[in-house]
Write a protein that binds this DNA or RNA. Structure first.
Lengths: 108, 108
DNA sequence: TAGACATATTCCCATAAAGGAATATATATT
DNA sequence: AATATATATTCCTTTATGGGAATATGTCTA
């Protein structure tokens, strides 16, 4: 089997650096595809393809205005990712003591 | 060109569900490869390969004890992911008003 | 209706992926 | 040294990927 499809879940969609860049640009700020092409310095088809992936997992939403399509980041969709990482939060840095205690508790 | 290698950055390494599962199991709780094989119901080579990927991006650390290798999650390495998602936090749900204001401010 | 413009899709290519099977390596035990 | 045990690696196959080039679709304007 090959890698899971980028369109199958948010983790996969976000694994691609360009797409992360797009999400960063589009958060709280709608942009047309053309604007993105300029901002990112990518080919237009490339941008459209990334947007498609992002749209399929609902990381962005689109709106048509005449000939143009305006995209914006749907921050909500990033929440699952955030929550997943938050689970690990208590295990890093400024809580070394707790981490240790927990680790020892788990090692039966 | 294809996607960036899973071994090149944390986002990619974490895109694979089994690897996320491994990280969850190994946080605050050291386990041998054999234990992981049992817990996850995967083939041993498969587990070893996933662990290799995780080790290359330092998401896990390893320790040898006799014939066995014990792995544990290095939560620190998840921080970048957490920070990236945190950037979007202010844009979701319970702060709709702020989001709107921000969006309007950005649309010159 | 025929462009012109903005965006989306398709086709092709080289590369990377994950699982399975087989095999290699490392360590302990006899 | 020979064997058993635990883990790692390699080879193979199928599938997904992302970029580039070309083309298709959709929408506006003359």
């Amino acid at each position: 089997m090959s890698r899971a499809a980028t369109t199958s879940d948010v983790f996969n969609a976000v694994a691609e650096p360009r797409r992360r860049e797009i999400l960063t640009v589009l958060v709280g700020c709608e942009r047309s595809v053309g604007e993105l092409v300029e901002l990112l310095g990518l080919e237009q088809p490339s941008v459209s393809k990334h947007l498609r992936v992002l749209r399929e997992v609902e990381l962005v939403a689109a709106r048509r205005e005449g000939k143009q399509m305006f995209y914006r980041t749907n921050a909500e969709a990033i929440k699952p990712l955030h929550e997943w990482t938050t689970f690990f939060q208590r295990y890093w840095s400024h809580q070394l003591k707790r981490v240790k205690a927990r680790a020892e508790a788990n090692e039966d």
